[in-house]
Design a protein around this nucleic acid. Structure first.
Length: 765
DNA sequence: GAGCACTGC
């Protein structure tokens, strides 16, 4: 705990130390502020973010790139681009009805006129013609656009108006569902067409598009899934990969596939001839990134041209700590009170790695806030993290009461996923938790979840959160040197997650991950580990070739072990039960919410669902109980029931949607999803066992559990109903290393299962 | 006695 400090006046203590690193103090030359101002001069007060070292580097990189003969990169700032006469519909290339995009005559309401005016004011609007020209002349274009440039909403519309996509749709991929749906809504408003006509979206469980759809916002997972039915993506004539810098696993797979698809689709075209007698229409690729690694995308696509568009952000003043702050929770608290007592009103957003630190800081701040003089503003603390009880997170969005300063304690959830209004100050601890898969050639790999230093991109993103509505201030609890030595951007996901599902999916496309032309190639160990898992599940044969079982597994939108469990349930006639469990496990939110203050109440409420066989059947009990209530009660009664039992209804509602989708897949595969085993639940565990064979452990004489595939000692996670129980053998959903290796989602299983299962596998092999 | 960043099909 960080509450070693007893008196509020000690808040300033840290700043009384010598400050050798200090170069310049801001306008407030208070001795007590230990901050280093990164703006040595005031020339760029308008865009202090640009003053960051890596932004400067971009210029340097581009300058040197321009000199190099090989690289074709150019630095097109908005001032370099020819400006356009303002009316988008006057574009020479516009062959479509102008949809009233910017023409004043077409707009009817003042709101729409304002909207079109807003569009014209976006930084990217001035570079429109040059941008379209580049896209027209190049197969691949890399667009580096800062936040607020308008690239995501405008570029697809420019392409549509230019007629570049006449033979197909324009796909715009996003890593997150909310982004895809909200962008589609926004852009369809701008186009003055109903959502789902000209502009639509496609995300899991939700599709709004039609045969007339020209611009389709979709998740990257969705388009990778589409590869299975349309390997050349013939539907699309332009694919825009947005947020490419995030380097999600699916974005990387898409980028690799687009390269080979483009080679095939653009090949028959005669270099000179415009006559497109070929059946295949060419594909244009636009890669959009918000950070500085655009070079990498360019190199990957044969030195594709990089275009740069300025962003629009309010100025954010950045201070670095003069010395490093090992106890970042304590440092965050001191900084918060410095802001609270010295700075004008405005909410504070503090970035912390996890729930534990958030709770600890919440307690410290509460303790001190009570001791402040009466004339200071009140403090309203809003913790915010994904695992938090739903409804608690909503507190963040409520209007801050008068004479109150909101203090938001958030994880990375507030970095990209959620934008919180009213934030003027950001405190950045420089830390986040990162999940990383540790492959073991024994096959018993596991995830680690450890606190790590963030990257420069991340630090800039966090600082930017202070400048959403007006100028802001960001206090970094690390030195400028520490910032300079940070990695530029996060390691791509493909290098740190389990590849099991992706390798299976690629096998269905006839591709091998190890032969794919990827921007970053994963470790050999990681591939071997995934191949081994797939072989164990029966998805691959001894020659690494896809089996019919593997193909069937890939048809489920699930992790291979879960898909395997469902397929196994057919033989045990308990598909109904297994689907219920897998659906809840696949839900993005947790069913059992933990609020530490109600621990005892939660334990009592959960007792009702507790199943001696473990977590899987406990989940089944809870889901069944909910469905009984759901059938007979009103919506509000259901909600109340969930609240009373500390169940997250959102998880249950999502599980029902997933279950419906899984039932459809089952029906297509000829699996009877209605098959039920009734009261005898032993077959359920057996089905799960077929999917989780590699996730099993045996009890040792000393009372610990040891992996069956690997040598690690694992502990049952405290959140499990089997915690502290000693059963001969367990299966688990996942293994996660924090302080120890914990097994989560645990069920008891007969040891003999593994003997018969192994025999069965051998016979099949 | 002890605990868990975030996505996606």
């Amino acid at each position: 705990m960080a509450t070693a400090v007893k008196k509020p006046n000690l808040i300033h203590q840290v700043s009384d130390k010598p400050r050798p690193a200090m170069k310049h103090l801001g306008h407030k030359t208070k001795k007590t502020v230990p901050w280093v101002d990164v703006d040595d001069d005031d020339k760029s007060r308008k865009t202090p973010l640009k003053r960051n070292n890596d932004m400067v580097n971009v210029h340097d990189q581009h300058h040197s790139a321009r000199k190099s003969k090989k690289a074709r990169h150019s630095y097109l700032s908005m001032s370099d681009l020819p400006s356009e006469n303002g009316d988008a519909s006057s574009s020479n290339h516009s062959r479509r009805r102008s949809s009233g995009t910017a023409g004043p005559s077409a707009s009817s309401t003042p709101r729409l006129i304002a909207l079109q005016e807003q569009r014209r004011q976006l930084p990217i609007a001035q570079g429109k013609d040059a941008l379209i020209e580049e896209i027209r002349n190049n197969d691949v274009t890399v667009l580096l656009g800062e936040t607020g440039s308008g690239k995501t909403t405008q570029v697809p519309q420019y392409i549509l108006e230019s007629g570049l996509a006449e033979n197909g749709q324009i796909a715009v991929t996003q890593p997150r569902k909310v982004a895809a749906t909200s962008l589609a809504t926004r852009v369809s408003t701008e186009q003055q067409t109903p959502l789902g006509s000209t502009v639509g979206y496609s995300v899991r469980f939700d599709e709004r598009s039609s045969s007339s759809t020209r611009i389709k916002y979709m998740t990257d997972g969705m388009i990778v899934r589409e590869l299975l039915s349309d390997p050349l993506l013939n539907k699309y004539s332009v694919v825009i990969v947005d947020e490419a810098h995030e380097r999600t696993l699916r974005t990387d797979l898409l980028i690799a596939n687009l390269k080979t698809i483009q080679k095939q689709r653009n090949r028959p075209r005669d270099e000179k001839g415009k006559g497109n007698a070929d059946k295949m229409s060419p594909l244009k690729i636009v890669v959009m990134s918000a950070t500085l690694d655009a070079e990498k995308f360019s190199k990957f696509y044969h030195n594709a041209k990089i275009l740069y568009v300025k962003g629009r952000q309010h100025p954010v003043k950045i201070y670095h700590s003069a010395s490093s702050q090992p106890d970042y929770v304590d440092a965050a608290m001191r900084t918060f009170f410095q802001i609270h007592t010295d700075q004008p009103p405005g909410d504070v957003l503090i970035f912390l790695p996890g729930q534990e630190d958030i709770e600890s800081l919440e307690n410290s701040i509460k303790l001190f806030a009570n001791q402040l003089p009466c004339d200071t503003m009140d403090v309203l603390i809003c913790p915010m993290y994904a695992a938090q009880a739903p409804g608690q997170n909503a507190k963040v969005f409520t209007q801050t009461p008068t004479n109150t300063r909101k203090c938001i304690l958030a994880t990375n959830i507030a970095e990209t996923s959620i934008t919180i209004p009213g934030v003027k100050y950001v405190i950045d601890t420089g830390k986040s938790k990162e999940k990383r898969y540790l492959a073991r050639d024994s096959g018993g790999g596991f995830d680690t979840l450890l606190t790590k230093d963030i990257t420069k991109s991340s630090a800039m993103q966090r600082a930017g959160r202070a400048g959403r509505e007006g100028s802001g201030v960001c206090f970094r609890l690390y030195t400028e040197d520490a910032f300079n030595s940070m990695e530029l951007s996060a390691e791509p996901e493909i290098l740190r997650v389990s590849l099991t599902a992706s390798i299976l999916q690629l096998k269905c496309l006839g591709q091998d991950l190890e032969e794919l032309d990827l921007m970053d190639k994963p470790d050999f160990d990681s591939i071997i580990s995934a191949l081994k898992t797939l072989w164990l599940l029966g998805a691959l044969d001894n020659n690494k070739k896809l089996t019919p079982l593997g193909r069937q597994m890939a048809s489920f939108p699930l992790e291979p072990p879960h898909a395997r469990s469902i397929i196994a349930s057919q033989a045990f006639a308990c598909t109904a039960e297994v689907l219920n469990i897998i659906a809840v496990l696949s839900s993005s939110s947790k069913l059992f919410v933990d609020v530490s203050t109600f621990r005892d109440e939660i334990a009592t409420a959960r007792q009702k669902f507790r199943h001696p066989a473990g977590d899987h059947l406990t989940i089944l009990n809870a889901f069944r109980a909910y469905e009984e209530v759901a059938d007979s009660e009103s919506k509000s009664a259901r909600r109340e029931w969930c609240r009373k039992h500390f169940l997250n209804e959102r998880a249950l509602l999502e599980a029902k949607e997933i279950r419906e989708q899984l039932r459809q897949v089952c029906a297509r595969a000829g699996i009877d999803w209605k098959a039920t085993c009734g009261e005898n639940e032993d077959p359920v565990i057996r089905s799960l066992g077929h999917g989780l064979t590699m996730n099993s452990a045996f009890l040792q004489p000393d009372g610990s559990y040891r992996q069956t595939m690997g040598q690690s000692i694992v502990k049952i996670h405290p959140g499990s109903v089997l915690c502290d129980k000693k059963v001969p053998a367990i299966i688990y959903d996942e293994l996660i290393y924090t302080n120890q290796i914990y097994a989560r989602g645990v069920s008891s299983i007969l040891k003999s299962f593994f003997v018969t299962h192994a025999a069965l596998n051998q016979r099949n092999a």
